[in-house]
């Protein structure tokens, strides 16, 4: 009887939806317990349907949804604690270097991009496939190392930037040849989102002072790119994307402000790689 009921559309549909929602859990947890959780949820569906019909299913979903939200938050928090425990001095040093090289690749990529020479394709590869992954690794380590002192807002906003920014940049590759359209614009909006979130993290860091020195570095590392891009997009909407005004905005941005941003990012990488946890710091 039970296996016949398991084929009912409402049960099948509920199980399919639940299976999809499991993607919200950390990958390792999904891999270890996902199939068992789906099995238990299916058993619960069958019991709810048998005892209370469709009403029972609604009640079950209400309970399950709350359980899902609560446990997803709890598992991610747990994962973060485990990651922190696992982060060795070598990992921190490597992440610091990733931030330094990511910053250099980003500045060089943008300089080449706005010069619009024959190296245009190379600059796209440099920004999307080299600098973005390196910056993600470096900034995740910054969040991991200093997030606790900065507090929940700073930590969460940086995480949002680290997810949305690279995602938008990657999506933009499907429209990279048309910078006037939204898809093409994402190529510059994506990094703007990432750096705007870093700037907000930096703003909080100015007050909380989590870094051992140069606490203004995160703000300087984040603020310039979004400002330049915001001005560029606003001016472009009025004068067109290839107007003289726009070219001078990009000229100032790429020649002065992006290098400043790059220096600030390199400074953050340097701080990170030289700031070992006290208990594991190598003896002098």
């Amino acid at each position: 009887m039970i296996s016949q009921r398991a084929g009912l559309p409402i049960v099948k549909f509920s199980v399919r939806v639940y299976q999809t929602l499991l993607f919200a859990y950390p990958t390792k947890f999904q891999y270890e317990y996902g199939s068992q959780m789906v099995q238990v949820f299916q058993d619960c569906c069958l019991r709810a349907l048998r005892q209370d019909g469709t009403n029972g299913m609604f009640k079950l979903w209400a309970v399950t949804f709350l359980d899902l939200i609560q446990s997803v938050i709890s598992e991610h928090a747990q994962k973060e604690i485990e990651m922190k425990k696992e982060m060795k001095p070598e990992d921190i040093r490597m992440a610091g270097w990733a931030l330094i090289w990511g910053a250099l690749a980003f500045v060089i990529g943008n300089l080449l991009l706005f010069v619009r020479g024959p190296l245009w394709n190379f600059s796209v590869i440099l920004i999307v496939f080299l600098s973005m992954p390196l910056l993600i690794v470096g900034l995740l380590a910054v969040r991991n190392r200093y997030g606790e002192k900065v507090g929940a807002f700073g930590k969460n906003i940086l995480l949002i930037g680290l997810i949305l920014g690279p995602l938008m940049t990657f999506i933009s590759l499907f429209g990279i040849n048309d910078p006037g359209r939204l898809l093409g614009l994402l190529f510059i909006i994506g990094p703007s989102v990432l750096f705007a979130c870093l700037a907000l993290f930096g703003l909080v860091a100015l007050y909380k002072k989590p870094l051992p020195r140069w606490n203004a570095a995160p703000l300087f590392a984040g603020v310039w790119y979004p400002i330049i891009i915001l001005i560029y997009v606003v001016v472009s909407m009025r004068t067109g994307f290839d107007s003289d005004a726009n070219i001078s905005i990009l000229g100032v941005g790429s020649s002065i402000l992006f290098p400043i941003q790059g220096i600030a990012l390199v400074a953050m990488g340097y701080i990170l790689k030289s700031d070992m946890p006290e208990e594991t710091a190598a003896p002098a």
Binding site: Y25, Q36, M37, V63, Q70, S71
Partner: peptide, 14 residues
């Protein structure tokens, strides 16, 4: 105490 699959397997894991 109504335990959903998330709480149940999260607790089991720990």
């Amino acid at each position: 105490v109504l335990m959903g699959p998330g709480t149940l397997y999260g607790s089991i894991k720990r």
